[in-house]
């Protein structure tokens, strides 16, 4: 990025156009209440306050490839406390979403990985298949770790089967919404609409 782009409004405008609730970023008054209220603030690469300042400073790559907004647990503490009523949680998710669309998610970001797993599972039949989602989560970080986790969770699984909380037969596809093709058509349409919004 050239020197002149620093602290110019280009990236701020990009965020306003593409990120959910992005038009609120300019309303931050840098009081730092969000940063102080975040229960996981210490674990973040950048607090929301800093993310907003970085957006204004034009630090596009640093913001979008950051791990920070993926760390948000949606506790809504920041929204509740923000004196300017900025929807901070929504903006964090909006930024994560935008980064994902641009392919800028940091490699092996666990929240991003699980989110993808969840989406893949859900979008197939319109219902979550808990058995395959659970197993997918166990094996997310490799086969050996998956086996280890499965063994560790064995008794829980058996108990769930015994009490009728989990159906082993779900492994063969599982149940779905009544009109699967209609559901897929709906998703297709949503994707088309979203594609027109991406610039």
């Amino acid at each position: 990025m050239s020197n002149t782009a620093k602290y110019r409004n280009d990236f701020l405008k990009e965020v306003e156009a593409n990120v959910e609730e992005g038009e609120w970023v300019k309303m931050c008054m840098q009081c730092g209440v969000c940063a102080g209220s975040c229960p996981l603030g210490n674990a973040w690469e950048h607090t929301p306050q800093k993310i907003f300042m970085m957006i204004r400073a034009g630090k596009r790559d640093e913001v979008l490839s950051s791990d920070a907004m993926w760390m948000c647990t949606s506790c809504y503490n920041c929204i509740v406390r923000c004196p300017r009523e900025v929807p901070i949680t929504h903006i964090m998710h909006g930024l994560a979403h935008y980064a994902k669309r641009l392919g800028l998610v940091p490699a092996n970001q666990p929240t991003a990985k699980f989110a993808q797993l969840f989406w893949n599972n859900l979008s197939k039949r319109g219902r979550i298949n808990e058995l395959t989602l659970g197993l997918g989560l166990y094996f997310m970080n490799g086969f050996v770790e998956g086996i280890k986790t499965s063994i560790k969770m064995q008794s829980l699984g058996l108990n769930m089967i015994k009490t009728g909380r989990m159906n082993v037969m779900e492994i063969f596809g599982g149940h779905s919404v009544k009109d699967t093709s209609g559901f897929h058509a709906m998703l297709q349409k949503a994707e088309e609409i979203e594609a027109t919004r991406i610039k």
């Binding site: 602290y7 409004n9 701020l12 300019k26 309303m27 008054m29 300042m53 204004r56 400073a57």
Partner: peptide, 24 residues
């Protein structure tokens, strides 16, 4: 940033709304 007076904070907010960037 200090904007004293009854309308001070509103004026600040309106400035932000209009796209003025404030950098501490």
């Amino acid at each position: 940033l200090r904007t004293p007076g009854a309308g001070g904070e509103d004026f600040y907010r309106n400035g932000q709304q209009q796209g003025i960037t404030f950098t501490k």
